[in-house]
Computed example of a mutant assay.
Amino acid sequence: MLEKKKYRCLLAMLLMAWHTVAVFAQTVQTVQTAACCGGCRPGYRLVFCDEFNGADGTLPDPKVWKCCRRRPQVTWARFLSDSPDVAFMKDGSLVLRAVPASDGSAGEGTMRTGGIESSQSFAFRFGRVECRALVNPFIGNFPAIWMMPRTDLKWPQGGEIDIFEQINGEQKAYSTVHSAWTKGHPGEPHSGNISLPMDRYHVYAVEWEEDALTFYADGRQLYQYEKQNDSQEQWPFDKSDFYLILNQSVGDGSWADKPDAAHTYEMRVDWIRVYQKEKTGTCRNAVPTEKDTGGKGFCALRTAGKGEKETDERGEARAGRGRKSGGRRAFP
Rank of each mutant, 00 (worst) to 15 (best):
L15I: 12
V31A: 09
C36Y: 08
G38E: 04
V47R: 01
D50L: 01
D56A: 15
G57E: 04
L59W: 11
C67F: 15
R70G: 01
Q73A: 14
L80E: 06
L80G: 00
D82H: 11
A87S: 12
F88C: 07
F88V: 05
A101N: 15
D103A: 06
G114Q: 02
S119V: 10
F124Q: 01
A133N: 00
L134I: 05
P143Y: 04
R150L: 03
G158P: 01
F164D: 00
E170S: 10
Q171S: 15
T176N: 06
V177Y: 00
W181G: 01
T182R: 02
H185T: 13
H185K: 13
P189Q: 10
R200V: 03
Y201S: 08
V203W: 03
E209Y: 04
D211N: 15
S231V: 03
L244D: 00
L244F: 00
L244R: 01
G251M: 03
G253S: 05
S254Y: 06
P259V: 07
D260Y: 05
R268G: 00
R268K: 15
V269A: 02
R273I: 01
R273E: 03
V274A: 06
Y275F: 15
T282D: 09
E290D: 13
C299L: 07
A317E: 04
A317H: 05
G320Q: 05
R323W: 15
S325T: 14
G327D: 01
R328L: 09
A330V: 12
P332R: 10
